[in-house]
Design a protein around this nucleic acid. Structure first.
Lengths: 201, 201
DNA sequence: GACAGCATGTAATGAGTTACATGATTAA
DNA sequence: TTAATCATGTAACTCATTACATGCTGTC
């Protein structure tokens, strides 16, 4: 029986909304947490058991046809634990951006390498932005699967939309800048993007 | 002798700029990587040894006074390894935002809890934005410690400035929205922030 | 009858964090 | 002389990932 982690509470949060099978939870984690709390599928199967061991959820084995599925349901203690955790100070955004290390030391490589890095970041970010926009349109038009939770979902959505847009826009801007450079080892002060060091209005 | 990780290459990147003592590297990691590749100080002392074991750096024990310090220098093989890594596709931004889980399930707690979470995020983000702005002003005015690297630093700075600004602005906006709510369990469709689901112009 | 997807896991491994240990130097 | 900071690490632990294992079910 492990101690409860933020990941435990994240799953407990989903269970507070409704009961889910382990498989459904795994899919839902991919739909939602992937954006701001990405974890491998396998943690789900460990954590659900952990929640049961702590008495925060119950597991019910169903056998639809001959195929088994375990449905998890939150307990009253689980709701209390979740409410308590919501009062703890949670960590702000922690970013891991490998490609940005490569950008920071790009003068040790070639211009082509830097452009390839930026293009790959831009493509990935654009795909995420498209996905975020499509989901947002769905929520806006249909109310989504939990219309009674739309007000909190909107807060999260606003962040993710802005965040994916920022990444895509930045990568596009950086590509434009680098395109204008003769060389990645350039020392020319004029090659430094103007206003890069100032907050946009 | 461990396999090389992205963290290994990050440190190797610093060594490509100049030689550093282990302690200086630890400080520099805090100054730079903390923003987009945060790692504990202790990894530095493991990784430097690992770089030496791989032949990518050399260690020189100096004794200034009676205090010992180990100065690390990149080797030719180290420069080649770094240049090779710069050509590999690096991962895009991966976000871990614990407080956003709490926002997503805020309807299971109280309005006060949600406001406290948002305020704490905003305070932290504002502090980071101030720090980023101060560093940017320094780079803009003095050229910073490596003026010949200013063009790549500017690319990184632009991202970090926008990113810290986004987080701070979002938290402030979210606080304003929630302030107007009667209750966090509100179902009123009018309480949903207008245009939250649309990309800003 | 094969293959994609449903459904649920386990084992091995690894990267990273926290906490601790140690002693020197310098400024108040 | 006390505290802060310089300077370098080690050990234990935790969290998470990757890769694998298993068998069912519906469809072409």
């Amino acid at each position: 029986m492990r101690a409860l982690s933020s990941t435990s509470y994240a799953i407990l949060g989903l269970l507070a909304v409704r009961s889910w099978s382990a498989y459904e939870l795994a899919k839902q984690m991919d739909r939602t947490f992937r954006w701001y709390w990405p974890r491998a599928e396998s943690v789900l199967y460990e954590e659900t058991k952990n929640l049961v061991a702590h008495g925060l959820a119950t597991a019910a084995k169903h056998t639809a046809g001959r195929r088994s599925r375990t449905v998890y349901t939150i307990t009253e203690r689980g709701r209390q634990a979740l409410a308590g955790w919501l009062g703890q100070p949670g960590a702000g955004p922690v970013l891991n951006f490998e490609a940005l290390i490569q950008v920071a030391f790009a003068d040790q490589g070639t211009k082509e390498q830097l452009l390839a890095t930026l293009r790959s970041v831009r493509r990935g970010a654009e795909a995420l932005r498209r996905e975020a926009l499509a989901r947002c349109r769905e929520y806006d038009e249909t109310g989504g699967p939990s219309p009674e939770r739309l007000h909190v979902i909107a807060l999260v959505a606003r962040f993710l939309l802005d965040y994916t847009d920022l990444t895509a826009s930045w990568a596009a801007w950086a590509e434009e800048q680098v395109d204008q450079w003769d060389d990645v080892t350039s020392v020319d002060r004029a090659a430094v993007p103007p206003d890069a060091f100032r907050l946009r209005p």
